[in-house]
């Protein structure tokens, strides 16, 4: 079926077994992001130590694309120096906007999300968690 381009195995796997997912105590919540169009909702927390993203966790409810993309996001930024993490986020959001294709070398599993671009209405689902981490990092370590 055509949809396999959108729902690749790796996406369905992240959807069913989201990484770094679990309930967050309300005092820990750094970002509370909602997609008003569909009601998708995630909450996110993150910690940075010595300039390195130590942990990112999220909870909430959403479609397969938003949950899988958020899960993949956590794996893409954890253990990265904060500036490098910001670069990954910027690059992912730019590729979702259609500014440039993903670099298969660098993108790793994220390449699976390329298929979302064929479904413009779903791009917001794929970027929900990424906008949340972008703002969360800005709160923890304001960009100079």
């Amino acid at each position: 079926m055509d949809l396999d381009a959108l729902y690749q195995d790796i996406i369905l796997d992240h959807y069913k077994h989201p990484r770094n997912y679990g309930p967050i105590a309300s005092e820990e919540v750094l970002m509370d992001e909602e997609n008003p169009l569909c009601g998708d909702h995630i909450r996110l927390t993150a910690a940075v130590k010595d300039g390195v993203v130590q942990s990112v966790r999220f909870d909430g409810k959403g479609c397969a694309i938003s949950m899988a993309s958020s899960s993949m996001m956590t794996e893409s930024v954890i253990d990265k120096p904060i500036e490098e993490a910001r670069g990954v986020i910027r690059s992912f959001l730019a590729s979702m906007r259609g500014d440039h294709p993903m670099d298969p070398e660098q993108a790793g599993d994220l390449i699976a999300l390329e298929g979302v671009k064929k479904y413009p209405l779903r791009i917001k689902c794929a970027t929900l968690g990424w906008h949340a981490i972008e703002t969360a990092l800005q709160k923890i370590a304001p960009h100079q």
Binding site: M1, L3, L6, D40, C63, A64, I65, M67, Y119
Partner: peptide, 18 residues
């Protein structure tokens, strides 16, 4: 999720809202 369902049934020719 309703969005995934709507997308899926669309591929089967069925237009619904989510």
């Amino acid at each position: 999720h309703p969005h995934d369902l709507a997308q899926f049934v669309d591929q089967a020719g069925v237009a619904i809202r989510a």
